[in-house]
Design a protein around this nucleic acid. Structure first.
Lengths: 224, 224
DNA sequence: ACCTGAACACCGTTCAAGT
DNA sequence: ACCTGAACACCGTTCAAGT
């Protein structure tokens, strides 16, 4: 046997679910979603292929656990006393977390009942209730806000992955606007494309949260 | 008009991008996203593995084209004269399309600049402009609504995939509510979970569209 | 009980060879 | 030009064998 290129031939600490999830997050952050393979995890932990199946059901559960590891740090905060400020802060927290870990964006859209999504639901639900929403209005507002936050974050993450730097993003959107102008004479489309190119995703995300909050306050109570 | 499914060992008509996309949609509808493999496509079209790479760049482009095939049928409609009704109808059209083809939900969240997403953007932008939105308010309203529709549809599709029939879904949500009640004494969470169990995803989706429309109309114009 | 690593049953994509 | 199908370089998961 030739000596294997291991930098850490003997682990001092035992394998654990926590250590495996930690390694998965590190791999996802540096190599992206397609970089997360069972082989990559076992290589980083200097262990055998099948070892991780003693601690984690499979790759799907590992991804969900990694997402919860990131989102859990956001939803752990109790939040501001003012419910509107608390909602804005929580939404921004999720957005920023997904901006820093783009793979989380895709993962949260994949499974509505995973721990990370339930955590977001719970936190937003608490604040919406303090805002005065009850009954059907509460669950409608909750699902609308959760779906908006997850949808916006996923789109942003996917876009950031595709056009990492600002200049490339702007150039892309300008080409897009030009293409739309050619294909479609409609003013709305050209105008939106031009504005999208000049706008910050994060500000636009917050504007959407404000639109939603305005809607929750002004909408007639359904089923009342 | 769709051509009848032929199981003929020797094809009479030549391969084409259109025929490949058609086959992909059929496979995705019957076998789901994990069922779409290059091998499955070539088997259905009675051709060799490499043949499809003459018409399509790869699997990613094939998935995007399949999604556009489904969503294009929704965005093709000109829509109601009343912009609110038009927006509601378009949003519902996207929701129903994703309900019928759950794989589209995940696909739309994967890539913000794919044809199907641009088509939704365009249609919603036109109607929002007729509603009076201009400038920054137009692009903010547009991105908020697009992100909500895509987020809600993706969550619904993922949930429907996991718990296909209504009874299973309700049972799941009731177990979830019980678990939340144990873990978290907060009333908002228990209340929302209970309400979610009794509610129709489609109605809840429409309620969210109304919340956003109300917000767009009532929100003070930013940067004005 | 925990871990190992070869084996298994796949996968997307490429490419020399055919027509 | 279009198509074929074997070959390539992977992948997640399993499992007999070790400690």
């Amino acid at each position: 046997m030739t000596s294997p290129p291991q930098r850490n031939p003997r682990r001092t600490d035992a394998l654990s679910r926590e250590r495996i999830v930690e390694a998965a997050v590190e791999i996802l952050d540096t190599a992206g979603e397609e970089g997360l393979t069972v082989r990559a995890v076992t290589a980083r932990l200097a262990t055998g292929r099948g070892a991780i199946y003693h601690h984690v059901a499979g790759k799907d559960e590992l991804l969900a656990a990694a997402a919860e590891d990131v989102i859990g740090r956001v939803t752990a905060h109790p939040g501001d006393d003012d419910p509107r400020r608390a909602i804005r802060a929580l939404a921004l927290g999720v957005f920023d977390a997904i901006d820093a870990h783009p793979w989380v964006g895709a993962q949260l859209s994949r499974e509505p009942f995973q721990p990370a999504v339930l955590g977001i639901w719970t936190s937003l639900g608490v604040h919406l209730r303090r805002l005065g929403a009850r009954g059907a209005a509460l669950s409608e507002a909750g699902s609308a806000l959760v779906n908006y936050v997850l949808g916006a974050a996923a789109q942003h993450a996917a876009g950031a992955r595709r056009a990492p730097d600002d200049a490339a993003r702007r150039a892309y959107l300008e080409r897009l606007a030009a293409r739309w102008a050619r294909h479609d004479a409609d003013a709305a489309v050209q105008e939106s494309a031009a504005l999208l190119a000049g706008h910050d995703d994060r500000e636009q995300f917050l504007a959407g949260v404000d639109i939603f909050l305005t809607g929750v306050v002004h909408r007639p109570i359904s089923g009342g």
